[in-house]
Lab assay of single mutants.
Amino acid sequence: HSLRVHINGKDFEVHNADEHVIRALEELIRRGADADELKEFLERWKG
Rank of each mutant, 00 (worst) to 15 (best):
E26P: 01
N8I: 01
A17Y: 03
H15R: 08
V5A: 04
A33L: 09
G47E: 14
W45K: 07
L38K: 01
V14M: 04
R31E: 11
A35L: 11
E43Q: 09
H6T: 14
A24P: 01
H20W: 11
H15I: 11
H20R: 11
K39V: 14
G47D: 13
A17V: 15
L25A: 02
L25D: 00
L38G: 00
E43H: 08
R31K: 13
V21T: 13
R31M: 11
E40Q: 11
D11Y: 14
E13V: 13
L3K: 14
A24H: 13
I22M: 05
E40A: 12
D34I: 05
L3N: 14
D36W: 07
E27P: 01
A35M: 10
E37G: 08
L28Y: 04
V5C: 06
W45H: 14
K10I: 10
D34M: 07
V5R: 01
S2M: 15
R30F: 11
E26Q: 12
A24Y: 09
E40R: 11
A35H: 09
D11N: 09
I29K: 02
K10G: 02
R30M: 13
D36G: 08
L42E: 03
G9D: 02
E13D: 04
A33P: 05
R30D: 09
I7R: 01
E43V: 07
N8E: 05
E37T: 09
E26Y: 07
E19H: 11
D34R: 07
A35T: 13
A35G: 09
N8R: 04
D18P: 14
L3Y: 05
E13T: 07
A24E: 11
F12Y: 14
D18A: 11
L25E: 00
E19Y: 09
I22V: 09
R23Y: 05
E26F: 06
V14P: 00
H1Q: 15
N8H: 05
H20S: 12
R4M: 07
E43A: 08
V14Y: 04
F12G: 00
E40K: 10
E26A: 07
R4T: 15
D18L: 04
F41W: 14
F41P: 00
A17S: 04
I7V: 06
L42W: 08
H1F: 00
I29N: 02
E13R: 02
E43R: 07
G32I: 04
I22E: 03
G9W: 01
A24N: 08
G47Y: 04
I29Q: 03
R4S: 15
E37R: 08
R4C: 15
F41T: 06
G9A: 01
R4V: 15
I7Y: 03
A24D: 09
E19A: 11
F12N: 00
L42S: 02
A35W: 14
A35F: 14
E26K: 13
I29L: 09
D11T: 14
V21F: 09
R23V: 07
D18E: 10
E43W: 03
W45P: 09
R4Q: 15
V14N: 00
L3T: 15
E37H: 07
F12Q: 01
K46M: 14
E27I: 07
E27K: 09
F41C: 05
N16K: 04
D34G: 11
I29R: 02
H1Y: 00
F12R: 00
L42Q: 02
S2W: 13
F12T: 01
L28C: 04
H1N: 15
G9T: 00
L38R: 00
A33W: 09
R30W: 10
A17K: 04
F12W: 06
R44L: 12
I29H: 03
E40I: 10
K10L: 05
E26C: 12
W45L: 14
V21D: 04
D18S: 13
K46L: 14
R23K: 12
I29C: 04
N16A: 08
L42G: 01
K10W: 05
L38Q: 01
S2F: 14
E37C: 08
S2Q: 15
K39G: 12
G32W: 03
A33F: 10
V5I: 13
I22P: 01
I7C: 02
W45N: 12
I22F: 05
F41R: 02
H20I: 11
H6A: 04
N16I: 06
E37L: 09
I29A: 05
G47W: 03
A33H: 06
V21P: 01
E43M: 07
D34L: 08
V21S: 04
L3S: 13
L28H: 04
L28D: 00
D11F: 12
E13H: 05
R23E: 10
E13I: 13
F41M: 09
H20Q: 11
V14W: 03
K46H: 14
K10N: 05
I7D: 00
L25N: 00
H6S: 14
H15Y: 05
I29W: 06
L3M: 15
G32Y: 05
A17T: 06
H1S: 15
H1V: 15
F12V: 05
E27T: 07
E37S: 10
H1R: 15
H1D: 15
I29Y: 04
R23H: 12
L38I: 08
K46N: 14
D11M: 13
N8G: 09
E26H: 06
R31W: 08
R30A: 13
R30P: 01
I22Q: 02
W45M: 13
D34N: 12
L28E: 07
K46C: 06
D11L: 15
H6M: 06
L25Q: 00
W45E: 11
G47N: 13
L28W: 06
K10M: 09
R23L: 10
A35Y: 14
R31L: 13
D36L: 08
H6G: 02
G32A: 05
R44I: 07
N8K: 06
R44A: 12
G32N: 08
F41E: 06
V5K: 00
R44H: 12
W45Y: 13
F41Y: 13
E43L: 09
L25G: 00
R30Y: 07
D34E: 13
E37M: 13
H15T: 10
D11C: 14
N8L: 04
R31C: 06
E40L: 10
E13P: 02
W45C: 09
D11K: 06
E19F: 07
N8Y: 03
K46E: 14
H15K: 08
A33S: 09
D11G: 04
L38E: 00
K46F: 13
A35R: 04
L42M: 09
H20P: 09
G9K: 00
D18Q: 08
I22Y: 04
R44T: 12
R44G: 12
A17H: 03
D34W: 05
L25P: 00
I7E: 01
G9R: 00
R44Q: 13
K46W: 14
E26N: 09
